[in-house]
Design a protein around this nucleic acid. Structure first.
Length: 185
DNA sequence: CGCGTCAACATGTGCG
DNA sequence: CGCACATGTTGACGCG
């Protein structure tokens, strides 16, 4: 059910770096909410031991959310309150999501940069072609079509002409199916 | 449960 | 070296 049971069954009190000031209520912090509302006795912070942290990380890799039974089991294993385990998982989910958002943001910035470069290159190309048109009375010259509207899927980096009926429709459908991972630029 | 926030604690940095 | 201060990390809480 959980990673190597027993691995976290260590004397985490010995490893704890928190200065307890002789507070017997740690690590369980009974009445903590009362304490932290009382300005004379502000909440103190538990530091999980390395073993506790590793164990929780391993559990998180297996399940990012917990059933009540799982929560209870982990809490028992680590000598923590179920509420502490629950809070740890809530924070972990939020911070993992935040990191992923940052990664996605960086990726989109790079995509944007590439598209900007490509746009600049195409504009230069267009200017060159137009200058050829002006300087030429050649009968071989053909009217240039209007620039296509291109869209790119950032994951597979496939570029599709959005104005082309069939491909565009397929791409849009894929977009709608998998909006979490397939972005539309 | 996700999110925003607080607050304790850790770590880095600059200064005398 | 050690102190003050800034910044980062993370456990905890309250609200919607």
């Amino acid at each position: 059910m959980f990673p190597t049971e027993g691995a976290a069954n260590v004397d985490h009190k010995a490893d704890r770096s928190l200065k307890f000031d002789g507070d017997d209520e740690y690590p369980n912090m009974e009445n903590d909410s009362d304490n932290h509302r009382n300005k004379d006795c502000r909440r103190k912070k538990l530091r999980l031991s390395k073993d506790q942290s590793f164990f929780l990380e391993d559990c998180f890799k297996l399940h990012s959310t917990l059933s009540p039974a799982q929560k209870q089991a982990i809490a028992g294993q680590l000598n923590l309150k179920p509420r502490q385990v629950e809070v740890w998982f809530q924070n972990k989910r939020a911070r993992t999501k935040l990191k992923q958002t940052e990664v996605d943001c960086e990726f989109l910035k790079k995509c944007c940069e590439r598209l900007r470069d490509e746009n600049r290159r195409l504009k230069r190309e267009l200017v060159e072609l137009r200058s050829l048109k002006v300087g030429s009375s050649s009968p071989l010259y053909m009217q240039l079509p209007k620039a296509a509207t291109l869209r790119m899927c950032p994951r597979c980096e496939k570029i599709v002409n959005a104005s082309e009926g069939k491909n565009a429709a397929v791409f849009d459908a894929a977009d709608r199916r998998d909006t979490k991972l397939h972005w539309t630029i």
